[in-house]
Simulated assay, not measured.
Amino acid sequence: MSNPVTALIADDEAPMRDLLRARLHTVWPELQIVAEAANGVQAVELGSQHKPDIAFLDIRMPGLSGIEAARQLYTHSHIVFATAYDQYALDAFQQGALDYLLKPVSADRLATTCARLRTRLETRHGANREPEAPEIGQQLARLTALLENKGQAKPKTGYLRWIQAQVGASLRMVSTREVLFFQADDKYTRVQTATSEFLIRKTLKELLDELDPDEFWRIHRSTLVRVDAIAEVSRDVRGRQMLRLKNFDGEQLEVSRNHSYLFQQM
């Protein structure tokens, strides 16, 4: 293709946008990211302005959902949805012209998606996209109905919102919004907030199953961190990725090699 392929990224979580941008640069270096949006309204505005060939849309965004944004963008952009819900994605996207990515996005899955997008773009290069529009419109309508029937927020309401921590003879209720990180410590798990530290008996595996994957990432076999608490990623003298957290004067957190893909730009 003579003209460069362009793309829009829309996600209300900046680390997710950063991760997808880095992954795209790796698997498709020629792809030009012409705009990034932090919500559905921005996605529609920037998509209408730039008319990118591809729009990568988070499903759950403020203002407009990714589904609602897609209904205004699909006539001029190939749509790829991002979701944290595996079964939800399989139900919604097994058939049809739309594609999806599970978050956090893996390089292998993204490479498959990009290869499919290249094929579609080459097939339709110079052709009118209208013949595909009814099919996509119908799938978006089915997806909207699925969300209305199951409830878009239903998966999120099932996530853990409070941690019960024993403090002496008292039970302390700690909101997960206060938690900066969880760290395995022998038979207990350390719960760290900006001002306090607690020990609970839940394992990291249990917490992984109960916490929102958009809010907490596993960065080490012994550590879960709140994504929006990350202030900076750097490397120490041994080359390890280390996280510094906002409003926290304690230790930095190590990112293991197995999880370094989360910060691949480093």
Results as ranks from 00 to 15, higher is better:
L8Y: 11
E13S: 11
P15C: 03
M16W: 02
L19Y: 01
L20H: 07
L24E: 09
H25W: 06
P29C: 10
E30F: 07
E30C: 08
L31C: 12
A37P: 05
V41M: 03
Q42H: 06
E45M: 14
E45C: 09
E45N: 13
Q49H: 09
K51H: 09
D58Y: 05
S65F: 04
G66D: 01
G66N: 05
T75Q: 11
V80D: 07
F81P: 03
A82Q: 14
A82D: 04
L90V: 12
D91K: 14
Q94E: 13
Q94F: 05
L98Y: 08
L98H: 05
S106D: 10
R109M: 04
R109N: 06
L110I: 02
A111W: 03
R116S: 10
R116I: 01
R120P: 00
G126Q: 07
A127R: 15
E130H: 13
P131S: 05
P131D: 03
P134H: 02
E135K: 07
Q139L: 04
E148P: 00
E148H: 07
K154I: 03
G158D: 14
W162P: 00
Q164I: 08
Q166Y: 01
V167C: 10
S170Y: 12
S170I: 07
V174N: 10
L180F: 13
F182C: 05
Y188M: 12
R190T: 15
Q192K: 11
T193M: 10
E206A: 15
L207M: 11
L208T: 15
E210R: 11
D214Q: 11
H220L: 12
R221I: 08
V227L: 10
D228N: 14
A231C: 04
A231W: 03
R238I: 00
R240T: 06
L243P: 04
R244S: 14
N247R: 10
D249T: 13
D249H: 12
E251T: 07
Q252M: 10
V255L: 04
S256M: 11
N258G: 09
Y261F: 13
F263R: 03
Q265P: 00
